[in-house]
Design a protein around this nucleic acid. Structure first.
Length: 536
RNA sequence: GGUCCGAUAGCUCAGUCGGUAGAGCAAGUGGCUUUUAACCACUGGGUCGCAGGUUCGAGUCCUGCUCGGAUCACCA
């Protein structure tokens, strides 16, 4: 196994060679081509990122007034000079702004947009000057002669800092008139296609950084940009956290590496701890740890983090996925459905601009109302005539019902036999007090009244172990310590696990889980040098 | 793992019946310099995923492989 050369990784071509030549020429002008910092101004009261400036009251006001002026004009007509000049006086009074960003277009003309990833701001350089460059010599030495020379050496995608004053152009766009230009970092690779971005889903996922750059460079796109997908994901996650924190929950972190992979029916990833010389398993669920904490007196507790399951990949399955699990003491399954519904509505509204309705493919999903239906009633409703008995109820449900549950639906009354951690219904001992939430045919959440009788839990584990011996690799493993914990007395409690990635898919109209995970698992890249077929 | 589809310039894509490898963007040179995705002119850029086969001749047809996507199976 040889160490790849730099050229193995960044294969030279006409594009990289041109950028390398540009970088050398820039170095001759500015010195260090990888300076350590650029101090942005704070005209807007906070550090002037491009986004902060765009949202700055004064700038927004000028833009609004210019929009009004433009609205009164005919097609192609330009704003009258005296009105423009008046706005420019106001902008100039703000003084010098210093902003930094990535060039969204080549510097062919005098105008180019800089982006901070979220917003764009136009900057203007005049060949006739005055246009200086700031050297990267640590002292900020100003070279009054070579600003334009530097400008001409810049490439699409380079990162620069500019100092100048704000003004509105003849066409009415707020821009920065650059007086001093500082080179910050070179983009050695060409930018993605400005019209289409990165179209190949493999490359989007493998080169997520470039896909994210494309989000802000791209001129047109259908639906949300990749950047917007992950902004929405962040809003959902923070919305869920805020809801739970405000409701008095405590957030905890329980082990990711566990001596037993249990708490869910799934195949684990196995690893080995050298010092202890024991096998460890990446957790398949935090469930049993969280309930130990309920025993310990954390009556409202949640964990929002990754689970790992060593199973096939699909549009809806990634080997690691994010789950929100929480438990509430003294609550039963019905209380949990109420709570989950309230929480999901709250978080969806926060992430979806206040609306509870989302478009998903051909469907419109309304988070405003959640149906509740028993598993058997659902089969009778969606697959009338299909015989239902305790043996085939799950198979019949999977086959005939699941994909018909488009609107948010709590399916209740699961067979106890497939719910080894949940309490039986007081009315029917073969039924578990359990629900699953389905939206668009996808299982989004799973919850139940938690079994807290240590003896019965032990027996359920023993049943699971005999399932394992019959070859069911996913049957749960007995956890002796959990039985001990329950023996201290766990209050009656309800718990739930919510698949965050799937919820994000619904909110972003994405049909593959890999589009809502920044770095989904892919087969490793193969270099030509590793490929025996390609070695001459 | 099965089936189907795909892989052509840095990016997005065309390539007809098997007959000299194409466009737009990006890049280079020169011009222009208050523009709103693409200003004007010229130029360079290809192991057509990899390997083999059929053929006088393969981007195109056949076989195998690699990678990806869709779908089924498996799986929450």
């Amino acid at each position: 196994m040889s160490i790849p050369s730099f050229e193995d990784i960044i294969t030279p071509n006409d594009q990289t060679e041109a950028r390398k030549a540009s970088l050398e020429a820039i170095g001759a002008l500015v010195g260090n081509v990888y300076p350590n910092k650029f101090v942005r101004s704070s005209v807007s009261g906070v550090e002037d990122t491009i986004t902060a400036l765009k949202h700055f009251e004064k700038v927004a006001d000028i833009e609004a007034r210019m929009a009004e002026i433009k609205a009164s004009l005919g097609e192609g007509e330009r704003p009258p000079a005296e009105k423009k000049d008046a706005l420019n006086e106001e902008l100039k009074a703000l003084g010098t702004v210093s902003i930094a960003g990535r060039l969204t277009t080549p510097t062919r003309g005098n105008f180019v947009h800089l982006t901070d990833g979220m917003s764009k701001l136009q900057v203007y350089c005049n060949k006739k000057g005055p246009l200086a460059l700031i050297k990267n010599d640590g002292d900020g030495t100003v070279d009054a002669e070579n600003g334009w020379a530097l400008w001409q050496l810049l490439d699409h995608g380079d990162l620069i800092g500019v100092e100048g004053y704000l003004f509105v152009t003849n066409t009415g766009e707020v821009s920065v008139h650059v007086e001093r230009l500082q080179f910050l970092t070179k983009a050695m690779l060409p930018m993605p296609d400005k019209m289409h971005g990165i179209a190949d889903p493999e490359l989007q996922r493998r080169f997520r950084y470039a896909d994210l750059i494309a989000s802000t460079l791209q001129v047109e796109h259908d639906g949300l940009t990749t950047r917007e997908v992950f902004e929405r994901r962040a809003k959902l996650v923070s919305g869920l956290r805020r809801f739970l924190d405000d409701a008095g929950f405590i957030e905890v972190e329980t082990p990711m590496l566990t001596p037993k992979a249990t708490g869910a029916a799934a195949k684990p990833f196995e690893t080995h701890h050298n010092a202890l010389d024991i096998p460890l398993y990446a957790r398949v669920a935090p469930e049993l740890y969280l309930k130990r904490l309920v025993v310990g007196g954390f009556e409202k507790v949640y964990e929002l983090n990754r689970n790992f399951r060593n199973e096939g990949l699909s549009q809806r399955h990634n080997p690691e996925f994010t789950m929100l699990e929480f438990y509430v003491a003294y609550m039963d399954v019905n209380g949990m459905m109420d709570l989950a519904e309230t929480m999901i509505k709250d978080a969806v509204a926060k992430a979806n601009d206040g609306s509870l309705v989302v478009k998903y493919g051909e469907n419109e999903i309304d988070f405003g109302k959640f149906e509740r239906i028993s598993m058997k009633a659902a089969i009778e409703k969606y697959a009338p005539g299909v015989p239902v008995d305790d043996l085939n109820v799950i198979a019949a449900f999977d086959e005939h019902v699941e994909d018909k549950l488009t609107q948010p639906t709590f399916v209740i009354d699961y067979p106890k036999s497939i719910s080894p951690l949940s309490k039986a219904s007081p009315d029917d001992s073969s039924i578990a007090e359990r629900f699953e939430l389905f939206i668009n045919g996808m299982e989004v959440a799973n919850g139940f009244s938690e079994l807290n009788d240590p003896k019965e839990q032990y027996e359920r584990f023993v049943d699971q172990m005999s399932e394992r011996e019959r070859g069911d690799e996913e049957a749960m493993v007995l956890d002796e310590d959990y039985i001990r914990a329950l023996s201290y007395g766990m209050p009656p409690a309800a718990g739930i696990g919510i698949g965050i990635d799937r919820l994000v898919m619904l909110l972003t109209n994405k049909h593959s889980i890999r589009d809502v995970i920044l770095f989904p698992h892919m087969r490793p890249e193969r270099r030509a040098a590793d490929d025996p077929d390609q070695i001459a």
